[in-house]
Computed example of a mutant assay.
Amino acid sequence: MNAVEIQAHARQLFEAHGAKALAEAAQMVRKVEESGDKRLVDDWRRIQVALTQLRGPGVS
């Protein structure tokens, strides 16, 4: 996925799950790790980073 797609997925996940979006992304990372698809794992990790950035400063 390119950067625009990563950001779009992160926004959609955040809109759908709110504060639980980061946990949902982490769950997806674990799920796709089991499948062995490294590219998809990398995409989901990038989505996690984008979600962290969406939450803004002061939230950990």
Rank of each mutant, 00 (worst) to 15 (best):
M28V: 13
L54M: 11
E5Y: 04
A21F: 00
G58A: 02
D42T: 11
L51F: 03
A3R: 07
R39Y: 01
G56D: 08
G58Y: 04
V41N: 02
R30C: 09
R11T: 15
D43H: 12
L13P: 14
Q27L: 12
Q7V: 12
M1Q: 11
A25P: 07
N2W: 05
V49S: 12
A21L: 01
N2L: 08
Q12W: 05
A25C: 10
E24K: 05
F14I: 01
S60V: 14
K20S: 13
Q12P: 01
V32Q: 00
A10P: 15
H9D: 05
A26W: 03
V49G: 15
I47G: 15
K38Q: 06
I47M: 09
K31Y: 15
R39W: 00
V4M: 11
L40A: 04
A25G: 14
K20F: 09
G56C: 03
A50D: 12
G56H: 04
W44S: 00
E24Y: 07
D43R: 09
Q27E: 11
E5M: 08
R45S: 08
A10C: 14
L54G: 00
V32K: 01
R45W: 05
K38A: 13
R39F: 01
G18S: 04
Q27A: 14
R46D: 06
F14P: 01
N2G: 15
Q53Y: 08
S35H: 04
Q53L: 14
A50T: 14
R11H: 14
A23P: 02
V59R: 05
I47C: 14
V4S: 15
V4R: 10
Q53I: 13
P57M: 05
Q12H: 13
K38N: 04
N2Q: 08
Q53M: 13
A8I: 10
A16T: 10
V29E: 11
V29D: 07
A10I: 06
A23L: 06
V32Y: 05
Q53K: 15
L54V: 06
A16K: 11
H9R: 09
R30G: 15
G18I: 02
L13F: 02
V4N: 15
A23W: 03
Q27M: 13
E33C: 09
E33Q: 12
V32T: 11
V41R: 06
A25L: 01
Q48A: 13
W44K: 00
I6M: 14
A19L: 06
A25E: 00
G18Y: 01
K31C: 10
S60Y: 11
V4L: 08
L40T: 00
E34N: 11
Q53S: 10
V32S: 03
L54T: 00
I47Y: 06
E24A: 00
G36P: 13
S35G: 12
D37E: 13
L22H: 11
